[in-house]
Amino acid sequence: MALTQLKYEFSPATPRALPVPAVHFGVVGSGDMEVIIENKDLGGKAVATVVTPVTGFDHVWEMVLRRFMDECQLGNVAISINDNNATPVVVSLRLRQALLEIEG
């Protein structure tokens, strides 16, 4: 019954750096999530870790995260998510909002 941890790796075609060391966004309310995106030397790659009480949505997570990574092309970043049953729409929104925090 422990929490599920999912890990994903992405190799953006044109990796760009996060302009700040780290950004945090969101609250782990019911049906919601938080994310930290931070700089990390990963040879241009990006990694994402999702911690969630929900099981069986590995593919959905991968799809949503891949779409976000394709869009933002961040490289050398680690993405850490604490989830509490957020829907894919909410996940996409929170990821974009996190970037808006720094890029306005």
Binding site: M1, A2, L3, A22, H24, E34, V51, P53, N82, N85
Partner: peptide, 21 residues
């Protein structure tokens, strides 16, 4: 001790409850 410090509850994961940084 903000979120990037990642001081999550050591007790919630045992119960399968969502954590916050």
């Amino acid at each position: 001790v903000g979120p990037t410090e990642r001081f999550i509850s050591p007790h919630l994961p045992e119960l399968g409850e969502a954590v916050e940084f």
